[in-house]
Nucleic acid binder design. Structure first.
Lengths: 200, 200
DNA sequence: AATAAACTGTACGTCGTAGTTCGAGTTAGC
DNA sequence: GCTAACTCGAACTACGACGTACAGTTTATT
């Protein structure tokens, strides 16, 4: 599903009726762009096109500009993130809830990584704030509840704890990319380490 | 006649023989470059020159290329890092020793930050490995000793623990730059959080 | 005060990347 | 099997950053 890709497209009236190979290429481009931008937010259009198995000109046939492509990638990432996080139950025992939230967030962080950085040069500030605030407030609320019932330490700033969680998630992603740990053991390590760091 | 007795030699001559204002400017350039590159490893030569209060051409009068400047900055950072870390006593109670090591490393991380990333595009791979290995092995040895006497948990890979420490240090630096915490409280937060994350 | 070293801005050539145009070749779909 | 949609590479413009050359001015040093 998801056959959109032209929500804000300011091109000529050519909305629907795209050919199958075109749609396939568009998907391949967005896919490759997501993969490359997650590692290097400055990946060139040429690199993205080659990774997608198409020519540079073909890419420009589907996206008005590099910025437009990044915007599309970022918006998909945002949408997918919201979607995944909405399914996570943050009620019940704070420690277990945080574990569930971390496991899901880990996957998203590892998949999207530096896409946020790339997006910060292409997205409107308001959209950008939503990207950061949505997951942050979710964790923030859970953290606050856990601190109230003394499951998490409350003698350090809560914003610092959020930063620590983000740092560990990001660090784990880098460690996997460098081959220091495997993608399979990462979720457990992240969960255990964060819980330990927040323990009272 | 023979007005250029040492025109070619003066180019290569380093250190002595330079005028006082030249030496002052060289310091200012290295200083500004360190400050900018620590935040943005892609800072342009123009930005660095302006931040140093000199013209772009003046900068090129002292450094053959952008790469040469980065190499100088990186080597200073390496030297300073080795120097500082050499004074840290890593004996005695592992937890306290780690605290001392973290406090020193924090200052270095916050000061140099992304200089390593900039250097990775300009330094020889061998030099680059030294930069990473020297602090890492120091922490590694301390970690191993602490695990042996059960002061640090030993049920997770030790390389992961090193990654966590680096992630928290880097995250703290970012948090200070974003204004979420102050530079004054950072060392304590880093120390407490890392100790908690490693506690058995 | 004289001189050489150092600084400045402007302007030029080069290179890599973004974005466009064109003509010709493929391919999906009716 | 026809046609429009799609793809491709090569060549072009535009732009910013690096690096260099020049000519004029300031400043440290003797």
């Amino acid at each position: 599903m998801a056959v959109e890709t032209n929500s804000a497209a300011s091109r000529v009236a050519r909305g629907r009726g795209k050919r199958a190979d075109a749609l396939r290429n568009i998907e391949a481009i967005i896919d490759a762009a997501t993969r490359l931008l997650a590692v290097d937010p400055d990946a060139s259009v040429n690199e993205i096109a080659k990774a997608a198995g198409v020519g540079r000109v073909t890419l420009y046939g589907h996206f008005d500009s590099r910025t437009a492509l990044i915007r599309e990638v970022a918006q998909r990432a945002i949408h997918n993130t919201s979607e995944v996080l909405a399914t996570i139950d943050v009620e019940g025992d704070p420690r277990e809830a945080l574990g569930r939230l971390l496991e899901a967030t880990w996957r998203l962080t590892h998949r999207y990584g530096a896409v946020v950085i790339a997006g910060s040069q292409a997205l409107a500030p308001e959209d950008l704030r939503r990207v950061h605030d949505e997951p942050a407030t979710r964790i923030l609320a859970l953290l606050a509840r856990g601190r109230d019932v003394d499951e998490f330490r409350a003698d350090v700033p809560i914003e610092w704890q959020v930063s620590v969680i983000q740092a560990i998630l990001h660090g784990a992603s880098g460690a996997v990319h460098r081959g220091e740990i495997t993608g399979a053991e990462a979720p457990t390590l992240v969960r255990d380490t964060v819980i330990a760091a927040l323990a009272p």
